[in-house]
Amino acid sequence: MRSVLKSYMSALLAASLSLVTAGVAMADGLLDRIKEKGEIVIGIEARYPPFEYVEDGKIVGYGVDLFEEVMKALPDVKVTRLDLPFQGLLPGLQTNKFDAIITSVTVNKQRYDTYRLSLPIADASFAYVKRKGDTSLNTPDDLSGKAVGTQAGSAQLKGTEAFSEHLKAQGKDPIASIQTYVDFNEAYADLAAGRTDAVVNSLPNLLYLQTQRGDVFETVSTTFGAPTYFSWAFRKEDDSKALADLVDEQFRRLAADGTMTRLQEKWFGFTMDLPTDALPEPTE
């Protein structure tokens, strides 16, 4: 018993020592340190098909393939992925838990102002999904007077609210109620349960949902609101600038040589027109 107790204590001591040494000082830019260490740590939320999700225990998707292409510019750097819920991603970036968020971040004004966002990786314009066979919903304007669900704190929520205002400005009834969920999967479950009439999300996600559960859901694929994009996020500091610039530069290369459209064809089944000069500044 005594020796057991002793080994507990030494294990604890070792653990606390490793905590202290982990917080090292930084001199060069983030990109230099990544090259030096031979490792980049990225935060991702692997619950967002077809962008990043888990299949047979491995994280796959459009975003994963795209990042692999980008990392060809840094062949000696190993990628370490941390998978965590979206609510943890942006705080984790701020607190240096990882070097970048390489997961689909829907661009909105607040995020544009807070983070250094990459060039768009995909079109994120909003559309909605309804229960299969619901004939009362066929166009975006049909959301007037309906109960709509979406993710709490998301750009999609802001977009839905803005669209409701837009309906009101047109003299129509606004959206009757907007229910928010911790995650889109709960929003879909509640749509199937009949508490809401539609779920607003970005079109690529909804099209994927339909390929998996076409028996229950039907996507109304007319997008509404201002054009919106998905980006990856970096810290808005000089330290992160070189890394973010490198990623943008690689995007331009991949767009020019056709790799990006090839990946879009592979994961979405259609291609998108994306700006490659700069990320358009969002209005809301």
């Binding site: 609510q87 942006l90 705080p91 607190t95 709490a152 704190g153």
Partner: peptide
């Protein structure tokens, strides 16, 4: 839930 909203709206941790 309201704490999550607080985080999501302010990006404060």
């Amino acid at each position: 839930k309201n704490t999550t909203q607080f985080v999501n709206e302010t990006y404060a941790v």
